[in-house]
């Protein structure tokens, strides 16, 4: 597969002019949102086109589409960027878009620890390599039974992890979101055990479907979607795809994620999309595709491994998936 190389300028070196120009609009809307929210109603339309259109000439517009692409209707940019579970910026789906507007994503350091030859502090810029970048159009299935189809921009996680030279004891990879309550107001309350933590088995992490995301819709990744760097594991429930990653740790033992700590009987380590294993409180057999399954269509059937069984089912052969949920 060919990856087009647009130029020698690193994406990170370009100022996102559109975001800059929209700054005042963001602030204005953040004010409006706060006013409406405090009025208690949340009934007035808070959406506005201005802040939810991407730059058609986004910094990743020339990145070629990679393999595993799904041939399904894309969820609109507006929906992808205004309906977010990102509890660090509020537990209401519409909140992160406003409350993360001022989140500082540069400079961004990633701490690498544990069972590897090259631990240390890395700069985000070390990984924004033009020849790594691909567009991947993936299904995204939330544990809350809604789904999207998103054109992510990113690179295979294995390319990044190999640079740290994990040793033979590295059986798992643990990820942590930035912990900074000053910037992430949601962390001021113990909604979850902060910092948000997730983990993958090393073979899951090295799988070519697993990517690190830095953009979407050919543009830079919006803060509410987990800027500047987030995971995307398309065959697992959305909460596994941790946002705003600040730490990567190679471990011998399976990491315990924030959701596992919060409700061990409800969220397991694997959390593979599985229509046959219900969440203890609701069914996972069907899902609502945002922008498509609305008032006049039934929820669609959820696919095993979110439709990526051909690629990943072998990772779990011989395992009882109702036990290892």
């Amino acid at each position: 597969m060919l990856i087009k190389k647009s130029d020698d300028i690193l994406p990170s070196e370009i100022t996102d002019k559109n975001a800059y120009l929209n700054r005042r609009q963001f602030l204005k809307e953040a004010g409006l949102y706060a006013a409406v929210a405090s009025a208690g109603g949340l009934l007035l339309p808070v959406s506005s086109e201005a802040a939810v259109t991407h730059n058609e000439n986004g910094i990743y517009k020339d990145i070629a589409t990679g393999p595993y692409t799904v041939d399904e209707k894309l969820t609109s940019y507006k929906d992808v960027t205004s309906y977010n579970n990102f509890y660090e910026f509020g537990t209401q789906k519409g909140a992160p878009r406003f409350r993360a507007a001022e989140f500082k994503t540069r400079p961004w350091k990633i701490t690498v620890e544990g069972e590897c030859e090259k631990p240390g502090m890395y700069d985000l810029e070390d990984f924004l390599k033009t020849d790594w970048m691909e567009e991947r159009i993936y299904r995204f299935r939330c544990v809350e039974a809604w789904s999207m189809v998103v054109p992510w921009i990113g690179f295979e996680l294995n390319k990044m992890l190999k640079q740290f030279q994990p040793n033979s004891k590295a059986k798992y990879v643990e990820f942590e979101t930035l912990y900074d309550p000053k910037q992430m107001p949601g962390q001021e309350r113990a909604i979850l055990d902060w910092p948000y933590t997730e983990g993958l088995r090393i073979d899951e992490a090295m799988h070519p479907l697993t990517i690190m995301v830095v953009g979407l819709y050919g543009d830079i990744l919006p803060n509410q979607n987990g800027a500047p760097l987030r995971l995307m594991v398309p065959w697992k429930y959305g909460f596994k795809s941790i946002k705003s990653i600040a730490k990567i740790r190679f471990t011998e033992k399976a990491p315990v994620s924030s959701w596992m700590k919060s409700a061990p009987s409800e969220y397991g380590f694997y959390s593979n999309v599985n229509p046959n294993v219900a969440h203890p409180r609701w069914s996972q057999a069907r899902e609502r595709r945002l922008g498509e399954d609305g008032f006049f269509s039934r929820k669609r059937k959820t696919l095993m491994f979110n439709g990526y069984g051909e690629q990943v089912a072998s990772l779990y052969s011989g395992m009882d998936l109702s036990k290892h949920f």
């Binding site: 109603g41 009934l43 205004s82 809604w146 945002l290 922008g291």
Partner: peptide
Amino acid sequence: PAILLFYNAFTDNLGANPVE
């Protein structure tokens, strides 16, 4: 509240997941 909800549903102003 009910009127606003209906109005916003018809004008597609209930966000990405109007049904929810």
